[in-house]
Nucleic acid binder design. Structure first.
Length: 583
RNA sequence: CGGGCUGUGGCGUAGUUUGGUAGCGCGCUUCGUUUGGGACGAAGAGAUCGCAGGUUCAAAUCCUGUCAGCCCGACCA
């Protein structure tokens, strides 16, 4: 350590929020250079190399082959797949001196596709799986949480190439198994959830989420092992129910533009015949949003859902992708006179009705159920309006919020919400990119078939961040052995030169045994500083060569448990080897 | 993009209200002492106080503008 490029900080960096991130900076693993952009120092590089090593081993094991594509890419392939525009402002774009458009790759589907197209043209060449570990660039609106969400980050992305769905399924299953092995080795808690492949296109899709309260993804679980990203939860279509109310009737409900004011007015002026009080769940709320297509086309969309639920913007966005969602504004209301703001009802909604706005219902709205909803006139609502009898919609949409306690999609469980960080995503991409870029091979009948692809990603730098978040205590980091920057941290302390001579010898022997060592040989640094640093850095095994040497012992300490014991100096190598191989 | 906050040696900060020699802790250098839990003493190096303009005899401090960063939200594979 006397020559290691490292400076630990005694105080917390002011710009780091999460504990793991703070410790990575304090312990000298990473340094922030700009928002969402980090430098990796020697200790950080060691951890990064360990994580990459695990990923390489597991990818190689399933026969995937490593390649490396540039981070700096030309515009044309991304133009061909539509992503130059579809990716929007999150794409880093730049120009060269000839004014040609370039981009910094946010993912590399295009490059993989073109590389295979370049070299392969027969079904005999397939199946094929390729991967790379590469810097990716996304101009995040707001980078945060240190390396958990940066603008530059390292990702392992791989792609499988097959001639048919059966082959794709096989490749997908192989990757799934590889990912389970990778994440089991990395040392953090995770869950595999059903996901929505969203804007990337494709079908079968699962995410590996690190379970973390600071995560940006919300997922649900039930007691029978069902787990899904909240975006991917499919609320089942409610079964038809018997109509139990009389004809629909319009009532005066002045000054009730919100659900709360409506419910209050109903209970005050229009009590139910059966004596139950009205709740927001008895009302049908109609929310209008503006969809904006990548080409700028704007189209309104109306969503009908029970009044006690909100539209979940994330769920909505993945359903309407690649369009984005913007609020429906005053001027939009003004442009559509059929809409009475605050009193909008199914009477005017729908492609064939007065507003002409496409109208989609939440699947929980059962055929035959009765609702209170807007009468499309200021100050009036309609009661006992029955779905199927009195109104219909253009379809359904899975956009309502999911809540703790909701019923599982299979009807047999209760959902619990939790937060996670997306660490890996595997999905069956299908032919979207192969189609766009013309990746076809001849099959055994001499016919051209479009190659079907799978896409599989792991956030590498993000994984380092998550491991740090999950493996620390008040003293510092406490790495799992598989990703620790070293196997053992040897501290030499004392003024007796014999200590350093002996420590040098121990370190040499350990290295000969193939053990990675960090050696604190700094002279004139007080023992307290060395101990604090060893705990902050977080190598799993710490060996202290110090005052015990006079009586022929050195100390071996477990970073995680804090357990320490004295070992005769001549037995220390064996003790460390056992420790390294055992835990 | 909206809201809040902050820019002062490498790091953490005081000073700004009320204009007057830029201070402290950590870190760094040298010498000496110290060596099992972030040691002690002495002597040092290191800052155009984010930037630009203005007011003033005088600006870290007041005014105007601008840039950057952090946090919350929107957004986000």
């Amino acid at each position: 350590m006397s020559t290691l490029f490292l400076r630990t900080l005694r105080e917390d960096p002011v710009d780091a929020e999460l504990p793991g991130h703070r410790l990575l900076v304090r312990a000298g693993y990473i340094r922030r250079v700009a928002p969402g952009i980090y430098s990796w120092l020697p200790l950080g590089m060691r951890v990064l190399a360990k994580v990459e090593g695990i990923i390489r081993e597991e990818m190689d094991r399933i026969g995937s082959q490593e390649v490396r594509f540039p981070a700096l890419l030309p515009r044309e392939p991304y133009e061909a797949t539509g992503r130059w525009t579809e990716y929007g402002p999150n794409l880093f774009r730049l120009k060269d001196r000839k004014d040609s458009d370039l981009l910094l790759g946010p993912t590399h589907e295009e490059m993989f596709c073109l590389a295979v197209k370049d070299l392969y043209s027969s079904y005999k060449d397939l199946p094929l799986a390729l991967y790379q570990i590469q810097q990716k660039y996304r101009d995040e609106a707001r980078p945060r949480a240190g390396i958990l969400r940066g603008r530059e980050f390292i990702m392992k992305d791989s792609y499988s190439f097959d001639v048919d769905q059966a082959g794709l399924q096989k490749a997908y299953d192989a990757h799934r198994e590889a990912y389970v092995r990778i994440f089991n080795r990395l040392g953090f808690e995770y869950v595999i959830v059903h996901a929505d492949s969203g804007a990337m296109g494709g079908s079968a899709s699962e995410e590996f989420l690190a379970i973390n309260a600071n995560g940006e993804d919300t997922f649900v679980r039930d007691e029978h092992g069902y787990a899904a990203n909240v975006e991917a939860v499919e609320v089942p279509q409610a079964k038809p129910v018997q109509v139990t109310v009389g004809p629909a009737h319009v009532e005066d409900t002045p000054d009730t533009p919100t659900i709360d004011t409506l419910v209050a007015a109903l209970n005050a002026n229009h009590p139910r015949v059966d004596g139950r009080s009205w709740t927001s769940a008895d009302t049908l709320k109609n929310v209008i949003v503006m969809l904006v297509q990548p080409d700028g086309t704007r189209e309104p969309l109306a969503i009908g859902l029970p009044g006690d639920r909100e539209v979940d913007p994330k769920r909505l966005e993945v359903k309407v992708a690649p369009a984005t969602v913007e609020p429906f504004e005053e001027k939009d209301f003004a442009a559509n006179p059929a809409l009475a703001k605050g009193y909008i009802g199914p009477g005017v909604l729908g492609e064939s009705r007065a507003s002409g706005i496409r109208y989609l219902l939440d699947p929980s709205i059962a055929d035959g159920s009765a609702w209170v909803t807007g009468a499309d006139e200021h100050g009036k609502h309609v009661l006992d309006l029955v779905h199927g009898r009195d109104f219909t919609a253009d379809g359904t949409i899975q956009a309502a919020e999911i809540r703790d306690g909701d019923i599982s999609p299979d009807g047999n469980g209760t959902l619990t919400l939790a937060r996670g960080i997306e660490m890996g995503h595997i999905f069956q991409l299908g032919t979207k990119y192969a189609e766009a870029l013309g990746l076809k091979v001849l099959d055994e009948h001499g016919k051209l078939v479009t190659v079907t692809m799978g896409s599989y990603g792991v956030g590498v730098t993000r994984a380092v961040g998550v491991v740090a978040e999950d493996n620390h205590d008040e003293l510092g980091l406490a790495w799992p052995r598989e990703v620790a920057p070293a196997d053992v941290h040897v501290v030499a302390t004392g003024k007796d030169p014999a200590v350093f001579v002996k420590a040098d010898e121990i370190v040499r022997s350990l290295v000969e045994q193939g053990i990675d060592v960090i050696y604190d040989d700094r002279p004139k640094v007080s023992p307290g500083v060395k101990f604090k640093d060893s705990e902050l850095i977080g190598v799993p095994t710490i060996v202290v060569v110090g005052k015990g040497l006079a009586s022929g012992v050195v100390e071996i300490k477990d970073r995680r448990s804090g357990d320490r014991r004295e070992v005769p100096v001549e037995a220390i190598i064996d003790a460390v080897v056992t420790e390294v191989n055992g835990s």
